[in-house]
């Protein structure tokens, strides 16, 4: 009896230690970037373009570029992903087709991001001739976040009680009317959560836009979907790996990292808050 109590204490302590170390590492990371990045950030940093050979000025074009790319990715993948989720949950019973689709979604989710970059380069940039552009980058990012959007939408749709669908159909609604008027409105918060999480993912990805959209420096702001764009994550990479004045540039990189971190953390915190609330509602608490 005594021995088993000691082993329980020791075991629980080890598990606590694992949790603690995990959070500790991440705490250090957050502290490091926040404490050093905060000095770099100013109104000017957020609103002006780089100057002095990338050693001075701000990162506004990179912020704008990231917003364009992310927005484009969502515009492309949301309708596609939602349609896929609707087809899988509302139209088809469990059969071979759904199984094939489910497996391909899972495997698409596991493809390394740099491979998406290769695909985007070969297909959008070269084959379709979109060049290194916001369009190519958005499409590539869009495919990358597609599986996430599908899974989140499916989860949201399946959480709608079957009784809503039955009631609607029994009243003489068609299937599409049932989806549009009952199922979609009720699952909207859940779908939104998935979309927000995907925004966070798309905003932070670097490898897929490396060859398809991003440039380290450009004059002015992108003016069409065929323009190249600066992007925050790529800017951090560029400053650290291709910079010529490490001292001054790492300071800018800290600022960029902090902005990107805050953007992504804020976005995912909103999404997770949404989801927790949604779960509480459905659990009836």
């Amino acid at each position: 009896m005594k021995n088993s109590n000691i082993s329980q204490k020791a075991g629980f302590f080890i598990l606590f230690l694992c949790m603690f170390i995990t959070l500790f590492f991440l705490g250090v990371l957050l502290y490091f970037i926040i404490s050093k990045g905060i000095n770099a950030i100013s109104w000017e940093f957020l609103t002006s373009a780089p100057s002095g050979g990338m050693t001075e000025g701000g990162v506004a074009p990179a912020i704008v570029g990231t917003i364009y790319l992310t927005f484009g990715a969502i515009v492309f993948s949301l309708p596609l992903g939602l349609a896929c989720a609707i087809y899988l949950t509302e139209y088809t019973p469990d059969n071979l087709v759904t199984n094939i689709l489910r497996i391909s979604i899972n495997n698409l989710a596991g493809v390394p991001s740099v491979v998406f970059g290769l695909f985007g380069l070969a297909v959008f940039v070269k084959y379709l001739g979109f060049g290194v552009s916001i369009l190519s980058g958005s499409l590539t990012l869009g495919i990358l976040i597609l599986p996430g959007i599908i899974s989140a939408s499916r989860e949201a749709l399946t959480s709608i009680p079957q009784s809503f669908r039955e009631a609607s159909l029994a009243l003489g609604a068609t299937r599409w009317q049932t989806i549009r008027k009952i199922v979609l409105p009720a699952s909207l918060p859940g779908i939104l959560t998935g979309v927000i999480l995907s925004i966070g993912r798309a905003a932070g990805e670097t490898a897929p836009i490396l060859f398809t959209a991003a440039v380290f420096y450009m004059k002015g702001y992108p003016n069409s979907v065929f323009s190249e764009a600066m992007a925050l994550p790529y800017h951090i990479y560029g400053l650290m790996m291709e910079g010529t004045f490490p001292e001054k540039q790492s300071q800018i990189a800290y600022g960029c990292a902090l902005i990107l971190l805050l953007m992504v953390l804020l976005i995912s915190a909103i999404a997770i808050y949404f989801r927790q609330r949604q779960r509480r509602i459905y659990n009836g608490k």
């Binding site: 009680p161 009784s163 809503f164 039955e166 009631a167 029994a170 009952i182 409105p185 009720a186």
Partner: peptide, 8 residues
């Protein structure tokens, strides 16, 4: 139906 199922 068995269980009241009003729409939200």
């Amino acid at each position: 139906f068995q269980k009241p199922n009003p729409f939200p």
